[in-house]
Design a protein around this nucleic acid. Sequence first.
DNA 1: ATGGTGGCGCGGCCA
Length: 255
Amino acid sequence: MKIATWNVNSLKVRLPHVLDWLAAEQPDVLGLQETKLTDENFPADAIREAGFQVTFAGQKTYNGVALISKQPAADIVTDLAELDDPSRRILGATFGDTRVLNLYVVNGQEVGSEKYQHKLHWLRKVTAHIGKELQRHRRFVVMGDFNIAPEDRDVHDPAAWHEKILCSTPERDALHQMLSLGLTDTFRLFDQEDGLFSWWDYRAAGFRRNLGLRIDLILASAVLAQACARCWIDKAPRKLERPSDHTPVVAEFAP
DNA sequence: ATGGTGGCGCGGCCA
């Protein structure tokens, strides 16, 4: 089972990249973030014509999440009882015997800001939900744009980013709280080269200079972490013309 | 150089 996550930063603009990537990689599940489309404008037909199923929770201009899959999605969740949030950042679904939660975590803008406090609150509520999901589903994956670099080795210049947004200790603690429920960052199950990132700022030629952060993650429950054979970052789409600022992260699990 | 680019949508917000 091949599971992937990709913040596309507008699916309207990135649809050709996504269709090409689906055709080449044939994932079982691809979670998208920042689709930035209302549901009536979602390009469901193009994705279905490519041989995939799709479910989505969109809004205008901001946010928006989707799950593209080989199998149909069951038990779809877009809103949590714990969280009164109109922004479309959450999409949970079951594919066969595997439960998937696709997240576009709040960015937080700046440490100490109102948006930052909201990010920490949002993470606490989502973590409470994940705790309950882990009780129900042995095969459980949480993936998405976490807007948190887990450790300094996930940051191109840890000194420059020290206690900055995406890297601050409270954000990392919040991620650790989520992991401590019984999830594993599948990327770190394997030996990886240094300097592998999933997001590069559009500004200052960030990608060319590899000024990146690893903030897109695939977390797996114990059973799935055991079955994980590989996790990698596919940099190819970031090299295309008019790319997203993020690139796909992929994990492969034994059946 | 406290900037820069990109998406949305047409001014300013968000990332």
